[in-house]
Design a protein around this nucleic acid. Structure first.
Length: 448
DNA sequence: AGCACA
């Protein structure tokens, strides 16, 4: 007569119409719970993402018998209850009703209230915030402010669905170290819903942006260091900023493909389109971002830097007069990333949701934060000294994170790999996200 | 993989 501890435990539990779920996938949704519960009865209430790991939940049935039928079904089933392929463990809760303390911040809406916790978190730029949240959809407006709670941002999406996908993926996580200034400590995100529907942004400034209204007056004095001055330090006038960059590639010893450019330029936001062409015997490329801010950030960061170590494929960037490129979606010289297969989005979302809960350094559990600490050093070592890089292995200067269209720079890899040149996230079937990881360094001289 | 106020 041997019965397992589990069985003993189960038998000692008094039935309740509230069931306790554990070992759920990270950030499991109410809908997923309802999906597996509804065959057994009417679900009247749920509470998911409970516990430190957010992997527990409660479901309340209308009737006790319904809860009993679910528990007994899975007690005798050969197939365990599963959510997203993960076995979930179901028991009677020791409470008999779900008490939902829905604060105002729990009522979904299209505007998120984000608290950025961390030392000097107020110095996180609005561009970085924009970059991080753009991974989930078009960000209409951002307003930032200091409150007693800390540095906060209101982020307006098109709809509550988009906002909630961002919240689910980012709440409790940290902004990647490499997106932060040196002196800013680890920045944790706490995200709830705002009651706002439409933010009233008066100026484009270092504290607020309206990405839907490029005509909005710019409050220059408020911009401070966040945007580049229109007049360079040497007094030279710069061309008007644009969302499309014209890249001239110097000393092109190695082939620069659409994929390579995509990897490099995706570090700053969604790359929408790329076109490579020859002009006067020089290779040039047009790279299109969704907005001017991203284009400006990319230009500023990449100007004068080399794609490969050793001074090869040096980039010179100017603003193009184009605003929307008309390119073939898939050719070896051009790509339109805005016409990708929609299945991509689902793939990427599951990448987010199936990974770990620990925001930083999960250690030896076989899970890895998206932003390997090495990334920062790696990026810096390749980019800190334009044109004067030490000779060495020719490797792409950027970790191969995907563009926000298919994932944010926080996109996660499930395996530990400290070889920076192979941090590209392989996404079967995703054009533009693959080959750089295995690019043979210095092997492909360019004979164009 | 183990019960929700923070």
């Amino acid at each position: 007569m041997s019965s397992s501890n589990q069985q003993q435990f189960r038998y000692t539990q008094t039935p309740s119409k509230v069931l306790h779920f554990r070992n759920l996938p990270w950030e499991c949704t109410d809908d997923e719970l309802i999906d597996i519960c509804s065959p057994f009865g009417k679900v009247v209430n749920t509470k998911c993402n409970v516990g430190a790991n957010r992997n527990q939940a409660f479901v309340e049935f209308a009737d006790l018998n319904q809860a009993i039928s679910m528990v007994s079904y899975y007690a005798s089933s050969s197939e365990p209850a599963q959510v997203r392929g993960k076995t979930v463990y179901i028991q009677y809760s020791n409470r008999h009703e779900i008490v939902n303390n829905k604060g105002p911040g729990d009522i979904p809406g299209n505007v998120l209230l984000v608290t950025i916790e961390g030392v000097e978190a107020g110095d996180v730029s609005i561009d970085v915030i924009h970059l991080v949240f753009s991974a989930f959809g078009f960000v209409h407006k951002i307003a930032t402010f200091e409150k007693t709670a800390g540095f906060q941002a209101l982020i307006q999406f098109t709809d509550a669905e988009t906002a909630s996908s961002a919240r689910n993926a980012l709440d409790g996580r940290s902004i990647p170290r490499y997106l932060l200034p040196e002196h800013v400590g680890s920045c944790n995100l706490r995200i709830s819903y705002s009651a706002h529907r439409d933010l009233n942004i008066k100026f484009q400034s270092n504290r607020s942006r309206d990405y839907t209204n490029p005509m909005l007056p710019v409050n220059q004095t408020a911009i401070d260091g966040a945007l580049q001055p229109v007049i360079g330090p040497d007094g030279k006038k710069k061309e008007p900023e644009s969302n499309v960059l014209l890249a001239t590639i110097e000393n092109m010893q190695y082939a620069v493909t659409v994929d390579v450019l995509h990897t490099v330029f995706s570090a700053f936001g969604t790359v929408q389109k790329i076109a490579i062409f020859e002009k006067n015997g020089q290779t040039q490329a047009l790279v299109q971002y969704p907005d001017v801010t991203t284009g400006a950030a990319a230009r500023e960061a990449l100007e004068g830097h080399c794609i490969y170590d050793g001074g090869y494929c040096k980039l010179h960037l100017t603003y193009s007069r184009h605003t929307d490129l008309n390119v073939k979606a898939f050719s070896d010289k051009s790509r339109d990333y805005t016409v990708l297969d929609p299945s991509l989005h689902a793939t990427q979302v599951s990448l987010w949701q199936n990974t770990q809960t620990t925001p930083m350094y999960p250690g030896l559990q076989g899970q890895m934060p998206s932003w390997d600490p090495n990334q920062q050093e790696f990026t810096q070592s390749c980019l800190s000294a334009p044109g004067t890089l030490p000779p060495g292995q020719a490797v792409p200067p950027f970790p191969g994170y995907l563009p926000p269209a298919t994932g944010s720079p926080l996109t996660q890899s499930n395996h530990i790999d400290h070889n920076a040149s192979s941090m590209g996230i392989t996404q079967p079937g995703v054009p533009g996200a693959l080959p750089h990881a295995h690019m043979p360094p210095g092997i492909q001289p360019y004979y164009g």
